[in-house]
Every structure is written in C-alpha cells, then in structure tokens.
C-alpha cells in the first residue's frame, strides 16, 4: 500500500489525511511529542500567503510547519 502514501506537503487546502509515517528521525520525534501520531487525522487549514509555511489541525490543536518539513510526513487519504 506504500504507493498510496502522499507527502503532507502535497495535501490540498481543506483536505484531510491520516498520518502514516515519517521520513526524518529528528522531526519525527518532535512531531510525535506534539501529538502528531500515526493514525491521527490531519486537516490542512491554511497556507501562508506565499504558499509556505502551512497550518494543520491535528489532535485538538493547530500547528504550523514549513513545506520542507511537511514533506517528511507521509499520509494516506482514506475515504
């Protein structure tokens, strides 16, 4: 099913996806601590006016991250 994974940075505004895994170890730890756990639903809520960084809603809070950072988060879109 790996083929169905997308990068979080590729998710469009307003769309939701499920966190699957991370491709960068240090960032993985940081995101895990903040509650971005595999299985959690993320919704892309906003892009900064120049398209970067992005804001996501996840586990009761709103987080911001740069596109380069979001590219390290693999998500899947489940219907």
């Amino acid at each position: 099913m790996r083929g169905d994974f997308k990068k979080l940075s590729e998710i469009k505004l307003g769309e939701s996806a499920v966190i699957e895994s991370f491709t960068d170890d240090t960032m993985k730890l940081k995101l895990l601590e903040m509650g971005c756990l595999p299985g959690e639903i993320v919704t892309v809520t906003r892009f900064a006016p120049f398209g970067d960084p992005m804001a996501i809603a996840v586990a009761d809070s709103m987080l911001s991250l740069r596109m380069s950072e979001a590219a390290n988060v693999l998500v899947s879109i489940r219907s």
Binding site: T26, K30, M34, P53, S61, M62, L63, S64, L65, E69
Partner: peptide, 11 residues
C-alpha cells in the same frame, strides 16, 4: 541547534 518551524498556533 536545527531550526524548526514546527510550532503551535494558539487560539
């Protein structure tokens, strides 16, 4: 340290 931008946007 490595620079992150991962931060919370509070209400």
């Amino acid at each position: 340290e490595r620079s992150y931008f991962i931060m919370e946007i509070p209400v």
